[in-house]
Every structure is written in C-alpha cells, then in structure tokens.
C-alpha cells in the first residue's frame, strides 16, 4: 500500500549516496582517541631485537612504540626487524634499528588528521599522544576503518529504525483510508521559531520515505505559508498537514485580518509587508507565487476582517515510478 511513498530500490540508492558523504563527515567528527588502541605493547631502547621478534610473534603485532622513562623516543616496526634479520643481528639493541622521533597524532585530533599522515607518509601506524606528549595509544588505518564503520552503523541504524517504523506505518495499520495528521500552532510575530514547523514536516516526510524532491517542495511551500502567518496575521494561525500514501494535503488557516484582494496578493512582487519585514529578507511579494510553483494544487480563500485559509496538495507518484523532478512545472 505504501509503495508509492516508499519504493525500496529508490530508498536504498538515496541511502548509499547519503552514506558516502556521511563517512566523510564522520572522519571530521570522530576523534583519534575514540578509535585508537589504548592497550599498547611498548619496547625499551635497550631491549634486544630478539625480544622484539618474540613479542611481535606472540602478540601478532607489526610495530611498537619505544619508550625510555615514559617518553616516546621511537617506533620499531616489522620492517626494521626484517632489516635486522637479514643482517643476523638479533642481539643488537632496539635503538639501533628503531625509527627515532616518530610522527605522532594527538588524541583530540579528528581521524582525518591521522588519515592525512597515512596518505602522505608510508607509515602503517602512528603513536597517539596527549597534550603533554605522553603516549596514550596507537592507531592504524584498520582502526580508523573499523571506527568509521561502527559509527556509521550506529548512525544508520538509529535513523534506519526510525525510517523503517515510519515508512511501514501505512502498511502496519489497516483501514479503508489511513492518514497521518501533523498539526502546528504558529504565533504571530514569532520570527525566532519561524520555520520550525516546516522543518519538522520536511523531516517527517523524509522518514516516511518521500523522495528528497517531494520533501523539498513541500518544505518550501509550508515555510512560505508559515512565514505568512508570522508576518501578516493578527494572532497567528494553524498549519495542518495530512499525509496519505497518495498525497500530502496542507491546510493553513488564521483568524485575521484576511486579505483584501486575493487576486492582487497572488501577483508576483505584490506585498503589504512593512519595511522592517523586508529588511529581514521577507515580504518581497514572492511567497504565494512560490507556493504555487511547489504544489500541485492550491486554493486561497480569504475574507477581510475574518481570516484566510490556504489549502495545498502535493500528489505522490504512483507505485514503482520515479518521482517527478522539481524542475518540471507542477502547476
């Protein structure tokens, strides 16, 4: 029943696209200390390379920081060990083969910083230090990948669960005609919260599985109507959005003062807004024109002294067809 709201193949495509950019976002949000390994096996500069060989073998690691009195002085890796093996020099101390003054990252850096080092230098691992330069962990490319996947899954799951629940609403509840009604009271002059209701409606539609184009068209139309309630009414009004599998119907009404000349109000550029409102970027006389462009049907009724009622409909595409692009003229 809800196939026209949620076509499985389309949603997956959108999702994939979203997730690619989400990984990039996460690379900036996640800190090195969240994904690093903090249980670090360390070596002493005077340890014999033989000890390194045994440690690496037992712990199945391929590198370790070298500490002297708690201070990080170098990094010893499997490559260093191989050089040593070729020379049959396993009795030599670690400090002869280690890489001194290793490049480090800070625990509070975003993982992107670590990725940059991995890309520009050929290191396989980086020691992680705190703001005092003390070793707190070690990070590899694998740690980053695992960390990103974990975060992505977390992210994905919570939104996915919401989306799943929402998008199956129409399937799970049976009736002759199922609809979801969202209702918002808008206060006159409340510029601070102007747009909150439309943002919520837009988000609800996306969760219900509507395409980004539909959500955008609906969001823009409701936003213009919401701002009209804030700017032009005497005591605010109500936005009521009814979502059904085949259409979204929006009813916006107020209790005054009404529009003197509806036809004139529909003309591009006509506005009764004050200069103050214009200076806020509104009242250019484009709102109703804009709404008309975004919806499939609209009706504006008003009586001066009584109030105004604006009704709009956006039709949702029938099952298994692609959403009409917003560039095509909906009116």
């Amino acid at each position: 029943m809800s196939d026209n709201l949620l076509s499985a193949s389309r949603v997956i495509t959108d999702k994939v696209a979203e997730n690619i950019s989400r990984v990039e976002e996460l690379a900036y949000e996640i800190r090195v200390r969240e994904v690093m390994t903090s249980q670090v096996i360390t070596m002493h500069p005077n340890d014999a390379m033989q000890t390194v060989l045994e440690t690496f073998r037992q712990a199945r690691i391929s590198g370790a920081p070298v500490l002297e009195e708690g201070n990080l002085i170098g990094l010893i890796s499997i490559e260093d060990l191989i050089r040593c093996l070729l020379k049959q020099d396993l009795a030599a101390p670690v400090h002869q083969y280690m890489t001194p003054h290793p490049v480090v990252v800070k625990g509070d850096d975003s993982v992107v910083e670590a990725l940059k080092v991995f890309v520009s230098k050929k290191y396989g691992r980086l020691p992680v230090v705190d703001s005092n330069g003390h070793l707190i962990g070690i990070i590899t490319k694998g740690d980053i990948t695992r960390g990103l996947l974990r975060a992505l899954e977390r992210d994905y799951q919570s939104e996915e669960v919401r989306r799943y629940r929402a998008s199956h609403l129409f399937e799970d509840i049976e009736s002759e005609r199922t609809s979801l009604i969202l209702r918002y009271n808008i206060k006159q002059g409340d510029f601070e919260h102007g747009g909150e209701a439309s943002a919520k409606i837009k988000r609800a539609l996306l969760r219900l599985g509507a395409s980004p184009q539909i959500a955008r068209r609906c969001g823009i139309a409701v936003y213009e109507a919401e701002m009209n309630l804030i700017i032009h009414t005497t005591e605010g009004g109500v936005i009521r959005a009814e979502i059904e599998p085949h259409q979204i119907s929006i009813d916006v009404y107020d209790y005054g003062p009404g529009i003197r000349d509806v036809e004139l109000a529909m003309q591009p550029g006509y506005s009764t807004a004050s200069e103050k409102v214009r200076e806020m970027g509104f009242g250019a006389g484009m709102g109703l024109v804009n709404i008309k462009r975004c919806v499939d049907w609209m009706k504006l009724e008003s009586e001066w002294g009584k109030g105004t009622r604006l009704r709009m409909k956006i039709y949702l595409p029938p099952p298994h067809t692609h959403t009409k692009g917003e560039n095509s003229n909906p009116t």
Binding site: G195, I220, V289, N290, R293
Partner: peptide, 23 residues
C-alpha cells in the same frame, strides 16, 4: 530575499547573503 532563495536555488548551493538572522 529568502523567497528568492526558496524559489530559484538548486540543491547543493553556496548561499551568499547579507542577512544573519536564524531564518
């Protein structure tokens, strides 16, 4: 003019504006 942005901006734009209110 926010209506202008709403009416003619295509997705993924960089919006330059002289306004700085929450709208």
């Amino acid at each position: 003019l926010m209506s202008d942005v709403l009416s003619s901006t295509q997705p993924e734009a960089l919006l330059l504006t002289g306004l700085c209110n929450p709208q």
